[in-house]
Amino acid sequence: METSSNTDDSSVTDFSDVGGSPNTPNTSLRPLPSIGEQSFCEGRHYHRYRPGRYLLPNDQVEQDREEVKHFMLLELTNGAHFLAPIDAAHLHKVLDLGTGTGTWAIEVADRYPAATITGIDLSLIQPDWSPPNVKFFVDDIEDEWVSGNNFDLIHARHVFPLIKEPATLTRRAFEHLAPGGWLELQDLSHLVCCDDETMTLDYPIAQLFDRITEAWGTFGADLRVGPKLEDMLRTAGFVNVETRAYKIPIGSWPHDTKGRELGLSFRVVIQMALSALCGAIATVEGWSEEDRNVLTARCDEALEDNSVHAYMHCYFVVGQKPVA
């Protein structure tokens, strides 16, 4: 198994103005039933709009997992929702690609009441009520965008590894930004690393992510696109491009409090996804139910083993559209 000895900053500088504001009145979101329909498989339900674009469920279990991931990244960034150096006075229009549960968009809307936040996703799983300055739409971000132009910030989290043409999406984001606007991508590497000798080649969690990367690759996605994002932004014309790679432990093995909290959160994130991830692998590789159950059990056991000092990188990549 490949290991990494990269070292990262122990803390994150919050480049954003994260001054809070009181909660604002909410407005109703009225979903369209035709694109809100679900399909079911093994007790889990999936979106039916553009089926196959996203291979994980969108049910309550998956939504709860997304909330844990949201908490985990806020813990990682010391509460910053984005790292792009945007002054609050210049933040007017924000687009959140693959908004999921909409929590990021809603919290940013609360913090920046003068800004308009637009969240788009394949699934209608956002709350029925939201602040008046946030709107949600069902759309496929790999199609031509109809959500507007001249955005000051376009944000995408856990999105680029799941799409087929990330370079095209990067260029599209460039076109829809206002001059001087920023694109920020936040993505896990999906490569399990270790800086000491505690992780063996047959570590189940590493094997899990190797196999899910291969399985997703059959659909044209690259789960390990994170290290390539900086070059994509530069090629698309972005300037002031910067990448920060932060380590997220897997499990509670770190000695420091923040590391343990991050590791516990990430362990929960993986545990909640195990069934669906192993199911995706089994479907692609033609596994029997026994094969699937064996991998699930091995991963469950490995996640409780704090003798293995495994971690995964999370990449934060920002780039600015030139002013002129």
Rank of each mutant, 00 (worst) to 15 (best):
Arg244Val: 05
Trp145Ile: 11
Arg267Glu: 15
Ala89Leu: 13
Gly217Gln: 03
Ala324Ile: 15
Thr116Trp: 03
Gly36Leu: 04
His158Gln: 14
Asn240Trp: 04
Thr101Tyr: 05
Phe316Pro: 01
Glu62Ser: 08
Thr116Val: 09
Gln38Lys: 12
Asp110Gln: 10
Thr27Arg: 06
Ala245Leu: 13
Val146Trp: 10
Phe82Val: 04
Leu153Gln: 02
Pro57Glu: 10
Val317Glu: 11
Val284Lys: 09
Asn293Pro: 03
Gly319Glu: 01
His158Phe: 13
Val318Asp: 06
Tyr112Trp: 12
Ser21Val: 01
Glu75Thr: 14
Ala109Ile: 14
Gln186Tyr: 08
Glu184Gly: 06
Arg267Phe: 05
Lys258His: 05
Lys135Asp: 15
Thr168Pro: 03
Tyr246Pro: 04
Asn78Phe: 09
Asn6Ile: 15
Thr168Val: 13
Asp87Gly: 14
Phe174Val: 09
Arg211Thr: 07
Tyr315Ile: 04
Asn23Glu: 13
His90Asp: 15
Lys69Glu: 15
Tyr311Val: 07
Leu264Thr: 15
Tyr54Thr: 11
Val318Glu: 11
Glu289Asn: 08
Cys278Gln: 04
Ile106Tyr: 00
Phe82Pro: 02
Gly226Trp: 09
Pro249Ala: 06
Leu95Cys: 12
Gly319Gln: 00
Ala109Arg: 11
Ser265Ala: 14
Leu73Gln: 10
Pro254Glu: 11
Thr13Tyr: 12
Leu56Asn: 10
Phe137Met: 14
Pro254Asn: 05
Asn240Met: 10
Phe136Arg: 02
Ser5Phe: 10
Asp256Arg: 00
Cys194Val: 09
Glu75Asp: 14
Phe136Gln: 02
Thr3Pro: 06
Gln271Glu: 15
His47Gln: 11
Pro322Cys: 06
Asp64Met: 05
Asp64Cys: 04
Val284Asp: 06
Met72Val: 06
His190Ala: 12
Leu74His: 05
Gly148Met: 09
Val12His: 03
Trp253Cys: 04
Ala282Val: 03
Ser130Val: 15
Ser265Asp: 15
Thr243Val: 04
Glu242Asp: 09
